[in-house]
Design a protein around this nucleic acid. Structure first.
Ligand code: FES
Ligand code: FES
Lengths: 143, 143
DNA sequence: TCTTAAATATGATTTTTATCATATTATAAT
DNA sequence: ATTATAATATGATAAAAATCATATTTAAGA
């Protein structure tokens, strides 16, 4: 449902949301360790997100990755769409292709309500929302 | 959340549930096409399920795979446990390891209710339940 | 303008997952 | 008993995902 890469990407973005801003960019070498993701791997993912304007970056000395306020107000799903692509989230649980409401597979009824709920949450929860939770001590960026 | 292999396995098992019984076994060559899974692939999966007594089989002429009544009364999760292993279903959405209620990751709150619901359904819905749905025309074994 | 520190682009390697192939073993029917 | 037909065990190959490596480009600061 969500790939390894997307998990890493979310961790990276949340770390940036928590510790960076326009004036305080973070280099990839300072991100990988705290979020426990190999440096070259998270680098590639962040580059991809930056290219698609999900996060921000500048090169050179004092450069690095960061989140603008606009970036922080995006829903989580934007990250998933870039890293995993649309269909990973909407594919049928049995046929691997699009989930079909009209001719549902045997698992559809069992799962679709929950799946929709998850989707909806990815669509409406923003990065800021999650940061708020963390700051309140309700959730934690894990090892 | 659930692998390709598990999806194939479920399709295979449901096909057997629908078309086989102790007196009418089905050879793997007659399964692969209708469920649209490569023959050698579904063969391997069914063999694995048979070894773990999730489904039944006999060799030789008139042999094949089938589901006993006992087999049909199992919950779907038994298939997933064999093919994917336990942790695939219970791993945290961010850290790849076990989901931790006490020190939840930022996605935990958003997802855990839905995930639990899905789990619960896999645990309580039996193969027979799904067959019943199909026979009533409420769901379909897809392409 | 030169040096340095960072992202970027690109691609190679490794690991995992998916797929294919086949020799061996068991069993039913002749 | 012999033959044919099926699963079983085992492992090989292919494709995809994860991981690693590096030369190039950009921008800041001396
Ligand atoms: S049709 Fe299979 S999950 Fe909707
Ligand atoms: S899903 Fe991450 S801790 Fe539960």
């Amino acid at each position: 449902m969500v790939s390894n890469s997307s998990k890493y990407a979310i961790k990276g973005v949340l770390f940036l949301a928590l510790h960076s801003n326009e004036e305080n960019k973070i280099a990839v070498k300072d991100i990988s360790e705290p979020i426990n993701v190999p440096q070259a791997y998270i680098a590639k993912l962040l580059q991809e997100l930056s290219r698609e304007n999900i996060i921000s970056s500048t090169r050179g000395p004092k450069g690095g990755f960061y989140l603008s306020e606009e970036n922080k107000n995006q829903p989580i799903i934007n990250i998933l769409k870039i890293i995993d692509g649309e269909k990973r989230l909407t594919s049928c649980m049995l046929s691997l292709e699009k989930c079909n409401e009209d001719k549902p597979c045997p698992l559809h009824k069992i799962l679709s309500a929950s799946r929709k709920e998850i989707l909806k949450n990815f669509e409406r929860k923003t990065i800021n929302d999650l940061v708020f939770d963390m700051k309140k001590g309700n959730s934690f960026l894990p090892l």
